[in-house]
Design a protein around this nucleic acid. Structure first.
Lengths: 231, 231, 231, 231
DNA sequence: TATGAATGAGAATTCATTCAT
DNA sequence: TATGAATGAATTCTCATTCAT
């Protein structure tokens, strides 16, 4: 469940430390401006969606200027794509931090579920951005060379774990790793992304810690209950 | 998997029934106007989200006029709520059409999964509307007497099936029906709602018929594999 | 030299007289609004060119609202085209008021020159609009069904006069009516349209009444001196 | 018709000549920068007018940078004036290349017409700039010491030719050289500057070589037909 | 019940210009 | 001399909503 917390904006804290030598200054300010716009945009898009996001608010929150937003990103849509790319970069970086290839298969799958749950829980903006992008039929992503086809490494990890578990007789066979990965993601995603309507309709506060703990346990039980063979 | 096709336009007013006599003509037109606005709004909100939806387009698509929209619904937000309520009414009506209480537990769960998948697949606008509402933290739904706490009957159905399956020794015990229901919904929801980004990122067309068939099979196997006990 | 003064906006004075009966009101206001926007736009575009014209100023000058401008005309460019079409309609209407077909050829040509001069002098906005449109390579006009190929009736008039003058031995032969028409227009146009730079560079006030009178005389002498044969 | 190709970029600084020694390199680059900005501005202003011209595009096209533009010229308006002055310098230089004082009057007038036509045809940007400046009521030119009252030498040339022709009995008397000069310029100017609208409205391609040839012949016939006396 | 006209506030985007280095 | 970064004020255009009839 170690999740290296990538944050939407590539480690602004690393930049803040102090102002080192002179000539570096200009470049650093530019980067900082760009990064702060990206961070502000991430929050704004996540909170209001693409259509509801306001360029003015982004500039304000970035303590920058609307003009700079266009200077660095070109348009609202281009900025949205940059935000998406940054978000994907964040989860990929976190995924790379996981190392499950040498773990026990059962334990590996459990940790993979936990990681996914934790990442989604810690990054509600990621879910919101994906929802927005799907509303727009992934038209931004389709244009992105950076992301198109940028498969998650977790699928390969899962494939390895499944193979190892099958060989040892612990896991059932004929499980498609991609389908299982989508299931694992979906089990967390839906609960977290739709908590507001679910809580309202069911009259249960799904945000509470006990409920969340129960959810994680249920998901682990569900997936492992399916995968593992008796005996 | 019978799903009575509620359609977005299912005119809630039709349920209220009044004035079936003389001045029918005008009243009918009024209902028709209201219904066509609701239908147009459903499509617009589903396609563009709340922030991206345009009142003008709704009036145009309804072959009506903006003023009427305000006359019948009061505001864009109120119209959005009406659309949501109508959508929930639609799924509830469909759910009521299912009768699984007397089926074999295994079969009942399978059919419940199939129903959910089918409904979501046939009603992408429902998923889109829920996403929008969650983006807005369910603030419309929370105001709706009609929906707040309007639990799905499927949860009770599922509880019955689980109990029967447990008693017969087919199903494992200690399964929370709500958690399981959320899982079943999430397995379908995520796949369908996020198909655009998933297809783009994984380079596989998740919309294709074979892929969808495989998905349904996987979900059934997953849930029943978890629930059913060996022997 | 009678020139029925078409005015850029179809006789607003006719509309102002008084507010007659009730039901006519709405329609009339709409027309009035549209007309006042057109008039204001004519002045703005003539004074500042297409690029320099300001939509805000047009709305202000029309005592209307920016939104109305878009409501009636759709865009700044479409408004510019409407202004152009209206201006062309104005000159065509004025041209139709001339009736030179039965005049003496010499007199007819003289009056045609005088008419052209007078119209251009009374309608500096027409010259300015044409200059703007030429700067933009007539891209608006090319899209206009109303104007494309809407030949001036004066060319046919000129052709008739030339033929009659040639037959009577007064005029030289082999004169292309279109070339001559362009020359007559150009002689007035350049003087009036470029008065500011010409006056500045030559240090002579070409706007003064005597200078203008001299100009008209010169043009008549030039054209008739060319056309008429000795004897 | 020799026209010494002044070119918009003719670097007025080149006339000033200084520092032809050691630090030449930097100085040369400076001149080159200034000249390339001037050239780029000429094209931009000619193409889009003063209001439609963009400082960014000028800097880009000059392969320089916006700051330099302000460094050398001070403001957009001042740059426009510099462009105008450069353009006038261009035509004056070309006019000085003509030497018609000793030619036969008829031939001299013909060549003067041809020169004017040719220069305008080769320098559409000059016409466009003059149109812009007239739109702005010559406010830039009026401020320019360099140009105010900088009469064209052609007027004096024309006066000489007219006098010689009158004395020899070839030309009619009482012809104002300035009026005639304006006529000659106007005959070319209007045709060339308004080709786009004229071609569109008349449905004839006035840009074609045969049409242009016919135009030049018509203008020469018109002016000489007017000037020359029979016998 | 229906509709065309109207509007003010605000939306994204662009502009000429200046600052810091 | 040169340049990238920055900005405030505009600019075109749009939005949800209301008025008058």
């Amino acid at each position: 469940m170690s999740e290296t917390l990538p944050g939407a904006v590539a480690t602004p804290s690393a930049l803040r430390r102090h102002k080192p030598v002179a000539p570096v200054r200009a470049a650093r300010d530019a980067k900082r401006t760009e990064a702060s716009i990206l961070a502000a945009a991430t929050e704004e898009f996540a909170r209001h969606g693409l259509g509801g996001a306001r360029v003015d608010r982004i500039a304000l929150r970035a303590r920058s200027n609307k003009r700079m937003l266009y200077y660095y990103f070109g348009s609202k849509d281009a900025l949205f794509l940059a935000v998406l790319e940054n978000a994907y970069a964040g989860i990929r970086r976190a995924e790379e931090g996981l190392n499950l290839l040498n773990t026990d298969p059962v334990d590996g799958v459990r940790r993979l579920i936990e990681f996914t749950w934790q990442f989604f829980a810690n990054h509600p903006e990621f879910l919101a951005l994906l929802n927005s992008e799907n509303l727009h039929e992934a038209r931004h992503l389709k244009r992105s060379r950076q992301i198109r086809g940028m498969n998650s490494p977790l699928i390969e990890t899962l494939a390895v774990l499944l193979r190892r578990g099958q060989r040892s007789g612990e896991f059932r066979s004929k499980v498609d790793p991609l389908q299982l990965y989508i299931s694992i993601a979906g089990l967390s995603y839906f609960y977290l992304s739709n908590s507001h309507t679910l809580s309202t309709v069911f009259g249960r506060d799904l945000f509470s810690a006990p409920q969340r703990k129960a959810r994680l346990e249920h998901m682990v039980a569900l997936v492992l209950g399916y995968l593992t063979l008796p005996g």
